[in-house]
Design a protein around this nucleic acid. Structure first.
Length: 449
DNA sequence: TCTGGGGTCCTAGGACCC
DNA sequence: TCTGGGGTCCTAGGACCC
């Protein structure tokens, strides 16, 4: 446990600061990124905007009421991604052990960097200087023996908003092993990783408001109130114990896309087309990650915010657009849309690296598998690992759907791979919208472009 | 002018297997 | 033929993070 030195680097008001850097006339003004759509929320707010009480995740309307003269900008994620990769290049100057948490935030295990760069304070100061030189942006750095406290330390190092302008923070806060509990125990429980509004409320009912009070509670009480995993975890964290390692590369567990609409949608055919577009995009991202997916989930949210999911796991993985589109269709059809749909989404999970995936041929057969399983949940796996076995003669509503025919049984797997590669290549060159799934088109005879 | 979009992890119940 | 129990997989929902 002892000996680790973990740094947490967190950019200050990242998206807003990038926008100010791109347009210096915004400097000193309240700037809000996000919340430009009818149903948006704030993604990032400059310290000038925070002085009015504007915060991330706040509904746009509320932010506008708090500060009508704030500048509201639509997010430009490509710009933030560029800045993020330059940020990571700076991190790699110090250590290869970098775990990105978000575009603007990362843990660095700098335990082995002291011989080259000196004491933790010096490493943190160096990081801040290099970030400023390379990106023209400021960040805050926390250093501690573990991730939990490093993150809380970077928070303590942040600037503060005030109506007379941002008050600079310390920039760097280092918490030594001996000071751990003294730093931790006065903090509110909500500061701990994993304590959100629901857990905070439960803890308050137990009379717990600070981390110190949490530490005084028996672990069994916490487990009773919050469940086994969360209870044990929080008990450890309250005592400053956190052995989670810095993990540089994590394989994704799911890849998805969802959209909230300006007004609730009720037209089933329209929703199916939108879902097909999303499923096709998700399939492309699964392929570009070099993965295949076994589980497909459709998510739907009604106007009253009730949220439902429907998922299906297939015996063999899939990664083609038509396969994902075909998989989502019966899932959406199992849900009512007459109430009005606020949000629709698709996600692919059960991801496996493509090279270890067994029986990748399901995509050739998926139409029949999907509809058969949907109509008869008790049906076994109809030879899914064998592309030719899927009962090509059966008149199957899914496979014969005019809007989304199953890929031809006769198309050799190799040709299918080539077709997918071609789709991805055209998209890479001409943009995402250049190739669209047939199921996303309004009608068969109708010209789209 | 209520509540985004990208995710991770956990829980609980049922099916199923031994 | 009054009923175990562990393990795994799947599904749905929910808390939480940035």
């Amino acid at each position: 446990m002892s000996g680790r030195i973990i740094a947490h680097v967190d950019m200050d008001a990242f998206y807003a600061s990038v926008e100010v850097r791109e347009d210096p006339s915004l400097a000193g003004k309240p700037v809000v990124v996000g919340g430009t759509g009818g149903r948006g929320v704030v993604a990032s707010a400059s310290y000038e905007a925070r002085a009015y009480g504007i915060r991330s995740a706040m509904p746009a309307g509320q932010a506008r009421r708090l500060c009508p003269r704030a500048v509201f900008l639509p997010p430009r994620f490509d710009l933030y991604k560029q800045a993020s990769s330059r940020l990571h290049a700076v991190f790699f100057e110090v250590t290869p052990l970098v775990e990105g948490i978000a575009l603007d935030e990362a843990f660095l295990d700098v335990s082995a960097a002291t011989s080259l760069f000196g004491r933790p304070e010096a490493i943190a100061a160096r990081l801040r200087r290099r970030v400023s030189e390379e990106l023209g942006l400021s960040c805050s750095v926390g250093v501690a023996p573990n991730k939990l406290v490093a993150k809380l330390a970077s928070e303590a190092a942040k600037p503060r908003a005030s109506l007379t302008g941002p008050l600079p923070g310390q920039g760097v806060v280092v918490v030594a092993e001996a000071d751990l509990l003294g730093f931790l125990w006065p903090l509110p429980v909500g500061a701990l990783w994993g304590v959100g509004p629901a857990s905070r409320e439960r803890l308050h009912r137990l009379g717990v408001a600070t981390v110190g009070e949490l530490a005084a509670l028996p672990e069994a009480t916490l487990v009773g109130a919050l469940g086994k995993a969360a209870g044990r975890m929080l008990h450890e964290l309250a005592w400053g114990r956190d052995s989670r390692p810095v993990v540089p590369e994590r394989a994704p567990k799911s890849i998805g896309h969802e959209e909230t609409y300006e007004t609730d949608l009720r037209d089933k055919a329209d929703l199916e087309r939108r879902l097909a577009m999303m499923a096709d995009q998700v399939a492309a991202r699964v392929r570009s990650a070099g993965m295949v997916a076994r589980t497909v989930t459709v998510k739907l949210r009604y106007g009253d915010f009730t949220t439902l999911t429907r998922s299906r796991t297939f015996p063999a993985p899939l990664d083609s657009g038509p396969a994902l589109v075909a998989a989502t269709r019966p899932l959406l059809r199992s849900l009512s849309v007459t109430e009005g749909v606020r949000l629709l989404g698709v996600s692919a999970s059960g991801l496996l690296p493509k090279e270890h995936a067994p029986g990748q041929q399901l995509q050739l057969d998926l139409g029949s598998v999907v509809s058969r399983r949907a109509s008869d949940p008790g049906a076994g796996d109809p030879g899914a690992s064998d592309p030719g076995a899927g009962d090509p003669g059966a008149s199957d509503p899914g496979a014969s759907d005019p809007e989304c025919p199953a890929p031809s049984q006769g198309l050799a797997a190799q040709h299918w791979e080539e077709a997918l590669g071609a789709v991805d290549a055209v998209r890479a060159r001409f943009g995402e919208g250049s190739v669209r799934p047939a199921a996303a088109l309004p009608g068969r005879g109708e010209r789209q472009m």
